[in-house]
Write a protein that binds this DNA or RNA. Structure first.
Lengths: 245, 245
DNA sequence: GTAGTCCGATTGTCCGGACAAACGCATTGA
DNA sequence: TCAATGCGTTTGTCCGGACAATCGGACTAC
């Protein structure tokens, strides 16, 4: 069966993007089965009334996402594996909400204070300069799941405790017009201290999953430094990797 | 100062690739300083005797790597942050060697056996069908660092114990003509069992970092399923993330 | 029967051009 | 003084075409 592909030239949405979205939907939906050929680019372009570069741009974006594989002399195939999504710069809040976990947040600390040496280095600000510090307990189904300590440069964002309890930090930053660009992240493990155990309803010495992250916006500014600990019985990091070609 | 950019039209290396490599080298080397404009595409194309699409393709590849940021009406800038490399599908062996840690491997088990339910599900083979099982202890500076248990579909690869002790599993797979494409990965933590503690020179109940990974080749076949445990005092996962746009 | 060769199919690379959209800045107007 | 407008600059999108590189299968020669 021929796929029902169409583009709307009156739409402000770029043509290549319309096409790639429809192809992605067809793959997700199962209309394009794994391993099936996509039909050659020339013919596809002719059928849609598009030029070949435009079709190629659409296909390329899906190749970059790992959904398609191109082979010279063969054609373009749908990858047949449980490919989900490449690792995104996601927030714990969004992850939990997407998983239907109904996340809740308790703000424990929300102050402005001088930057410690470690924080200053991570945020590339002067030691002792003012930074926000936010400490939160993240719950799912009423059970503590993670303890989140974040530092932000002062003046970047108004951090309202009420908002912090209603949504995630990343959403607040995006809403403030900050475009997140990249992050440097480190994941490890260690034993819980007595104070940490108490906060997370664990016992002292219990294994904890730790994550430290510095996030940068598109100008290269460090906009957030986070030091998080997770209960490994309740949370693990799951993601998809693609090989850089 | 004008950057000394040149392309060799007699080379079989694609022109856009020659250009992107030179630009990347200039960024790495510091000739292109963070925040500096790259000069507009039209002029750059004229200077190199290339067409604008070719120059754009070169720039785009660096944007995808997170090294450059384009802004309409402004130009293309070098991102000024400690951007290293996006997360790659790397092997522990290569990571350690790159860090100058002189990794060593002891092969504990190297057999063929029927697939358990878990392994069969991960590799998408029938339960009970034959699979390779390899268990290795990875050392750095003579200290145990990780315990690696891997399963591979039978017939994919000859697993020679000697080779496994001399290099990494991924290198052997690549050398056998398998092109790694993507992987699904899960990172967590838990307490060490008595047997694990013994192997890793830890104590029972000590926190361990765990990683499970299924790797797929470019045809979508599952080619490897790994279950690894790391000593968190010796190893943590460090990587760079880019936001998908 | 087997290995090597040829050939059609398909993607990879590259060109030159055209217009649209967004940004920053200077100018203009209230 | 401050906001709105206009304009030049730069990237974003799209077109149509050309040739090269590679793959797989069919064919041929031994």
């Amino acid at each position: 069966m021929q796929l029902d592909l169409r583009v709307d030239r009156s739409s402000p949405v770029p043509l290549y993007f319309q096409l790639s979205q429809q192809l992605e939907a067809a793959i997700e939906h199962g209309s394009l089965t794994p391993g099936s050929l996509l039909g050659n680019e020339i013919e596809l372009a002719a059928r849609l009334g598009l030029s070949r570069p435009t079709v190629r741009q659409a296909i390329q974006s899906l190749v970059d996402k790992g959904l398609l594989v191109r082979r010279r002399g063969v054609g373009t195939q749908v990858v047949h594996s449980q490919v989900k999504r490449p690792l995104e710069l996601s927030s714990l809040f969004d992850d939990l909400e997407a998983a239907g976990q109904r996340p809740a947040t308790t703000v424990l600390v929300n102050t402005v204070e001088p930057a410690s040496a470690e924080v200053a280095a991570a945020l590339a600000v002067a030691e002792g300069s003012e930074v926000h510090r936010v400490e939160r307990l993240r719950l799912a189904h009423g059970e503590p799941m993670a303890y989140l300590c974040n530092h932000l440069p002062a003046g970047l964002l108004d951090l309202d405790t009420g908002q912090l309890e209603a949504t995630g930090l990343y959403r607040l930053m995006r809403a403030a017009g900050i475009t997140l660009h990249s992050a440097r992240q480190s994941i490890g493990a260690r034993a819980a201290t007595a104070a940490e155990a108490e906060r997370l309803a664990e016992t002292e010495g219990a294994p904890l999953l730790t994550m430290q992250r510095t996030t940068f916006d598109d100008t290269g500014r460090a906009v957030e430094f986070g030091d998080h600990i997770y209960r490994p019985s309740r949370y693990s990091f799951e993601f998809q990797l693609l090989v850089r070609s």
